[in-house]
Design a protein around this nucleic acid. Structure first.
Lengths: 329, 329
DNA sequence: CTGAAAGCGCTAACAA
DNA sequence: TTGTTAGCGCTTTCAG
């Protein structure tokens, strides 16, 4: 049933129907007629047809690496909570950390499919920059910070530095690092820099053989821990870029009989639920993922309203939670 | 830029452009001209306008309680993997376990917005049935089984029965139960029935004071465990409907000094990651959530192709993983 | 293989 | 307040 049929059924004109669903510039009489007819026919207007005219889809594209990551899920929760409040819906694409799929999805979203895009990227290539500059809807980057773009991000550097410092103060003299790909400016580069900074500040030296790069998985954390903890000289603390990696480390320690924190201290960034319930609860930095999501959504909404807004960066604070994994002495 | 402008720019007709993006009934010459023009202008057709004509949106609505639940995330991953393969995109709505929001979203999806719907509901009311019967796109239910609908579900009954039986065989004589709302036919009712069946089969008796209903959260599991384990007579095993609840129980035991499995055995359904890395690894039943998602997507795709398909139910098997939490003796 | 022309269902400017 | 009318950008006959 289309608007014409429905108008006929309700005994009013097409425009009256359109007005009912939009501005509402309508007499009581017609309004009631239309409501009665809706009740009877179940009519509701076609969103596609409306979009063709108004160029508004009420859809926001969200691109993220994977749903099964707690941090991503939290961000998406945040996005969805404010978006739904404003009548927007969420077009979700997962990329499995494959950045070509990110580009593809951006291209797809360029097809007038969405009113705006929120991108949770990890790496950020020239290709990203090129595609993004050609978008004709606003884009918000979450978790990363790049000149010329709207960003909502965390203080990855500060969190890493702070956590590392805690372990050094607890007496670590042979600190190790398990991070992620430095191409990832936030979780890779910034946390690495934070770790390094803390080491330098402490007057300790950085040892190449105590540095590892892992994937974003527990298994990878396990493997890297094995490598790190199988040498003849062992580190006495490990800073992990993510909780997931730290869990792998804890699993390895459990399997190999190393005691946490007595033999080795562990800290990691993210404050995921698992860190609380792990065999040894992990000292961690809470990043406000959900808030990042909701702020990104708000930022997007205002950019949709005001397309000529100057790009801005919103950096959210973190707080440290000390748990048993660094509870030495 | 619209199709007319683009056609002019490419030096071909509108129809040629349309054909290029659809059936492709086109001469090489024109094809090349169009490709060159795309390269230059970055034109891509408007999906909304196409949808108005074709009544195809290439969008699938997915309704789920929350993303931050691992099982939901796994199902969604599965859905998304097959959907993206067939050029469909995913319109996601989270309901926070509020079933009125489920109904609202279904209403929304009725507005010709999507080509099909996948619903991960928990409860299933008459309202659901009423709205669903009025949908004019196919719907697949995931995790629940209801007459007259396409469903992909798990063997909740069998899994619960099997896990409970394991604990009984390990010597439990005072088994307790922490479940969820029995309105939830799958996680609530079916798992409850499975538990009861195993007890009956063992000749044990069911004790009202050992039965609790929790929310789907760790905190709730913690509270219920506290209640259960503060009486003068304690159970010697607890079957939990979900891993999340079991984690809460484990936390409580840790806090109150109860040893698992020596003092009390624990088992739960779901095989979430956290169950593996918990302080005491949990005996659990693996449900194929991701497969459920991908199968639901496939089922939906074929229902879209063949709208007069007879409703069918696909029940996936489970397997039990015995871990330390029931490793008594 | 091609182009002209008639819509898809809706909104919005205009005149009443 | 209302109804008429001209499109929005696209697909799809239909006649060549």
């Amino acid at each position: 049933m289309n608007i014409s049929d429905f108008a006929k059924a309700a005994g009013v004109s097409k425009s009256a129907v359109s007005r009912y669903f939009n501005d509402g510039y309508l007499s009581k009489d017609k309004r009631e007629k239309i409501e009665a007819a809706i009740e009877k026919t179940g009519y509701s207007p076609s969103i596609s047809a409306r979009s063709v005219r108004t160029r508004i889809t009420k859809l926001v594209g969200v691109i993220l690496p994977k749903l099964s990551s707690e941090s991503c899920a939290r961000v998406t929760d945040g996005i969805s909570s404010v978006l739904s409040e404003y009548g927007y819906e969420l077009l979700l694409v997962t990329t499995s950390n494959n950045y070509h799929k990110e580009i593809e999805s951006l291209e797809l979203f360029r097809q007038n499919r969405v009113d705006g895009v929120i991108l949770l990227s990890t790496v950020f290539t020239d290709l990203h920059r090129a595609v993004l500059s050609k978008m004709h809807v606003p884009v918000i980057l979450v978790g990363q910070k790049h000149k010329g773009f709207n960003c909502v991000c965390h203080d990855d550097y500060g969190a890493a530095r702070n956590l590392t410092r805690i372990m050094l103060e607890k007496g670590s003299v042979k600190p190790a690092y398990i991070g992620v790909d430095p191409e990832d400016k936030a979780a890779g580069e910034a946390r690495y820099n934070g770790f390094i900074k803390a080491i330098e500040e402490s007057g300790n030296k950085i040892r190449k053989e105590f540095m590892e790069i892992a994937e974003f998985t527990m298994d990878s954390g396990y493997e890297k821990a094995k490598h790190l903890l199988s040498g003849k000289e062992l580190p006495d603390s490990i800073f992990c870029a993510t909780d997931t990696i730290a869990l792998g480390v804890i699993m390895y320690c459990r399997d190999s009989g190393l005691r946490i924190p007595e033999d080795i201290m562990i800290a990691s960034v993210g404050d995921s639920k698992v860190g609380r319930i792990a065999a040894v609860p992990i000292t961690t930095a809470h990043l406000h993922y959900k808030t990042a999501g909701s702020e990104a959504a708000k930022m997007l909404l205002s950019a949709i309203k005001q397309p000529d807004l100057i790009p801005r960066v919103l950096q959210l604070d973190y707080y440290v939670i000390e748990r048993q994994s660094t509870n030495k002495i």
